[in-house]
């Protein structure tokens, strides 16, 4: 009993950690490197609840390298009160961390299969730990592709890493943007178009998707169209996670508590619900 209580407390109390470094990624997006004060083990795709003292707490996916648990990395888009406060935390500042929570990307679900990582906008952040692992354990997978769509060339997240990955021969990196000037020599068009161009084998692949919900709905339809089984498609859902342990009820989506049963969910489970408005 005492042990159970202790475990419960661990998951509901924030631990205060120090920001080690802060880097601006985009106009409204910062990456914080946090000193977890010891190894912080997590699964790619999991999230933490980040607490800005006296202001509020928000779910933010972990975007660092799972092989480097001594660095806790979060990329935060400053769109509200709490995320603005978090993004403004400088070196040495403290923030509360609860987690890690939720189900991650099931990288072991399909050994040897091609892996397609499809990200839109800030959706690349929760997928980056998966990419680190895919590349670290490259031999375990078939073809690996990163298909990334963003608003403009200026708003490509992790641009230097994208360049680095692109120069590798063991991963296909395709980037597209919604708008760009004539100097842009890359793709301009909707991210789903990259799926049709990519060279993976639909029948023997696993697709990891994170981006705006409407993008994921279109991706789901397109993947079905080219013959990827829905059991092999995983999407990272976003809902109003508050307690992160399945008690507060806010993040329900159908019968799933996104905090606990997700955020990564097999498309198979949600397929029927994705088209339902205001669910």
């Amino acid at each position: 009993m005492a042990a159970a209580l202790h475990a419960a407390a661990e998951h509901t109390l924030p631990q205060f950690m120090r920001v080690r470094a802060r880097r601006q990624e985009l106009a409204d997006t910062w990456t914080l490197e946090i000193d977890p004060g010891g190894p912080f083990e997590f699964l790619p795709g999991q999230f933490n609840m980040l607490y800005a003292f006296g202001i509020g707490e928000v779910p933010i996916s972990i975007s660092g390298d799972p092989a480097r648990p001594e660095r806790l990395v979060h990329t935060v888009r400053a769109v509200g009160r709490t995320t603005q406060a978090l993004a403004a935390l400088g070196r040495g500042a403290r923030l509360g961390v609860r987690g890690p929570y939720g189900a991650g990307w099931p990288l072991d679900a399909a050994p040897g299969a091609d892996v397609v990582v499809l990200a839109g906008g800030i959706g690349l952040a929760p997928l980056r730990p998966a990419l680190y692992r895919l590349l670290a354990e490259r031999a375990r997978f078939g073809r690996v592709s990163l298909l990334y769509g963003s608003r403009s060339p200026q708003q490509l997240l992790y641009a230097s890493e994208l360049r680095r990955w692109r120069s590798r021969f063991d991963i296909e990196v395709e980037v597209t943007v919604d708008t760009a000037g004539p100097e842009w020599r890359g793709n301009l068009g909707v991210v789903t178009k990259l799926l049709r161009r990519s060279s993976f084998d639909p029948a023997n692949s696993m697709v990891l998707v994170c981006g705006p919900e409407v993008m994921m709905r279109h991706v789901a339809t397109d993947l079905a169209g080219i013959g990827v089984p829905p059991a092999r498609v995983f999407i990272s859902m976003e809902r109003n996670m508050k307690c992160a342990v399945g008690f507060c009820g806010h993040c329900q989506y159908g019968s799933a508590f996104v905090c606990r049963d997700g955020p990564v969910v097999p498309l198979e489970r949600l397929e029927r619900l994705l088209g339902v408005r205001e669910l």
């Binding site: 509020g56 509200g80 906008g121 800030i122 608003r151 909707v190």
Partner: peptide
């Protein structure tokens, strides 16, 4: 049509979080 939505743009409305 999908691009018309500007889905990667800043979220609309007054954000509270």
């Amino acid at each position: 049509r999908l691009r018309m939505l500007d889905v990667f743009g800043a979220p609309g409305g007054a954000a509270a979080d």
